[in-house]
Simulated scan of single mutants.
Amino acid sequence: MAKHKVVVIGDLFPSARESLEQKCDLVIWDKPERIPQELLYDWIQTAEGLFSRGDIKVDEELLSRAPHLRVVAQASVGYDNIDIDFCTKRSIPFGNTLGVLVEATADLTFGLVLTSARRIHEGWNFVKEGKWVGRKNIPYGVDLYGKTLGIVGMGSIGAAVARRANAFGMNVIYHNRKIRQDHNELSANYVDFSELLTESDFLVVLVPLSPSSRHLFGEEQFKKMKSSAYFINASRGPVVDTKALYNALIHQEIAYAALDVTDPEPINHDHPLLSLPNVLITPHIGSATIETRTKMAELTVENILAGLERKPLPACVNNQVNY
Rank of each mutant, 00 (worst) to 15 (best):
A2Q: 12
K3N: 06
S15E: 15
A16C: 12
R17P: 03
S19Y: 02
L20Y: 04
R34E: 14
P36K: 15
L39M: 14
L40G: 00
Y41A: 08
D42R: 06
W43M: 09
I44N: 00
Q45T: 12
F51G: 02
I56R: 03
I56F: 10
L69K: 01
A75L: 01
A75R: 02
G78W: 04
N81S: 09
D85K: 13
T88R: 00
P93L: 03
F94P: 01
L98F: 04
L98N: 06
L98Q: 06
L98C: 08
G99N: 07
G99L: 04
A117C: 10
R118A: 06
I120M: 07
H121M: 15
E122N: 11
N125G: 14
G130E: 09
K131F: 11
K131L: 14
N137A: 13
V142F: 08
Y145V: 13
G150P: 06
I157L: 03
A160Y: 08
R164Y: 13
F168A: 14
F168R: 11
M170N: 11
I173H: 09
Y174R: 00
I179R: 12
H183Y: 11
N184W: 13
S187L: 14
A188L: 06
Y190Q: 11
Y190D: 10
S194N: 15
S200F: 06
L203I: 04
P208K: 04
P211A: 09
H215I: 09
K224P: 00
S228I: 05
A229W: 00
I232N: 04
N233S: 08
R236I: 01
D241F: 05
A248I: 03
A248N: 04
L249V: 01
I250Y: 07
Q252R: 14
I254C: 01
L259S: 01
T262C: 12
D263A: 09
H269P: 12
H271W: 11
L273P: 01
L273W: 06
L274A: 15
P277M: 07
T282S: 15
H284P: 05
G286C: 09
G286Y: 01
S287H: 05
I290G: 12
T292E: 11
T294K: 13
M296K: 08
E298D: 11
G307A: 09
K311W: 00
L313V: 03
C316V: 00
